[in-house]
Design a protein around this nucleic acid. Sequence first.
DNA 1: ACCTGAACACCGTTCAAGT
DNA 2: ACCTGAACACCGTTCAAGT
Lengths: 226, 226
Amino acid sequence: MKAGSAEWWRARYAARGRQRPRPGGLELKRITRAALDIVDAEGLAALTMRRVAEDMGVRHTSLYRHVASRDELLVELVDHVLGEVVPGATGRGWRADMEQAAGEFRRVLLAHPAVVPLLTMGQLLGPNALRGREFGLGLLIRAGWEPARAVHIYLTVAHFVIGTALLDAGGAARGVEERTAMTELFAGLPQYPLVRELAEPLNLPDGDQEFAFGLTALLNGMGDPR
Amino acid sequence: MKAGSAEWWRARYAARGRQRPRPGGLELKRITRAALDIVDAEGLAALTMRRVAEDMGVRHTSLYRHVASRDELLVELVDHVLGEVVPGATGRGWRADMEQAAGEFRRVLLAHPAVVPLLTMGQLLGPNALRGREFGLGLLIRAGWEPARAVHIYLTVAHFVIGTALLDAGGAARGVEERTAMTELFAGLPQYPLVRELAEPLNLPDGDQEFAFGLTALLNGMGDPR
DNA sequence: ACCTGAACACCGTTCAAGT
DNA sequence: ACCTGAACACCGTTCAAGT
């Protein structure tokens, strides 16, 4: 049974709450938190079963009683991060709500850049992912969008947020040395004049501004319900 | 020097063409191709240095003469795949050109789903990535968009294509068994009524249709140059 | 210059054994 | 029920040695 699949999640939901951890013992949530700490501080490559166990003061083989594999841990980690997304109604209409929720989603992803690539591992079917779906669909449908169109809008915005976060997390050229390295790189590549000329905005984009620009364009293009 | 960084690519561009492979010997391009075959057939996890070497009839340690690390191989693999993107002018205006280029980009990504997550590893600064940038910026600027805005539009569309491809590649519920598993999963989760009601379009989306919808909305929202 | 063989440190996972 | 210790197969990478 592949970690993150619908079948896997079903078994997971069924098992939830059945655990009764001993005080001070291991527990899925504690493991996930330790994993997130490692990933945030040192990146995905540093996240090994042995390292998680070490940080928790336990042998690495003990982890396998709570999580069947490293892949399962990664799936749980993703939903754990999605749990930090707390959207709320603005009271200023569906567009404002959508922008607020998208911005909140983006904020959380940028706070955990190493986790973002994991969003591509499979479908997002954990409890926190579904809560976000329910919220997004609800605000669109209450605004009068017909369901099929609400799904389109929801998915498009979600994809946009993830897409920009991905390139923001992995891509942006931060720091002076990377910046000068970029300039030197393009200086030696006269075959790409526009890329060279526009190197500054292309490689040192203001991610937030670019995000706002794209989201506005996207929502502008959606029109209005009914 | 981190694989995929501007500094790394600069050294890489400088070294390019300096190799003179023996007939039948190893060569970066042949290694990259072998790697792509493995990844396409069996996914990213199957891509080990040992496996690549085995497929090429060579010892795995030999690869390190042509590529400094597995990470470097992955970076080269990404640009190799981007080389399959062949956009062309439609003669029907910038919007049609942009839609054609985005569709072509999407087509290539979907043909190599296991490679898509790698697009998030770092900046896309290889020769094929830069060629694509130059093309996209060129068509926008020739259409009359001012440079700063052309950069915005280019990045937004690129992010959208990658975002949708990511979720398409990893996410869609293909096959009957995954479909019924999904139904059963939601049947047990009454706390998400909309997610349950709209499970069909949410989890079995027609990716191409959804892509077209989003791209149209995006470009609609951009307006016109000048 | 290129490829090989042996070796090292590290990893995920399994399982019998302890409490 | 939970944790441990030992073990297995596998991995990326290094390097001296061959041609």
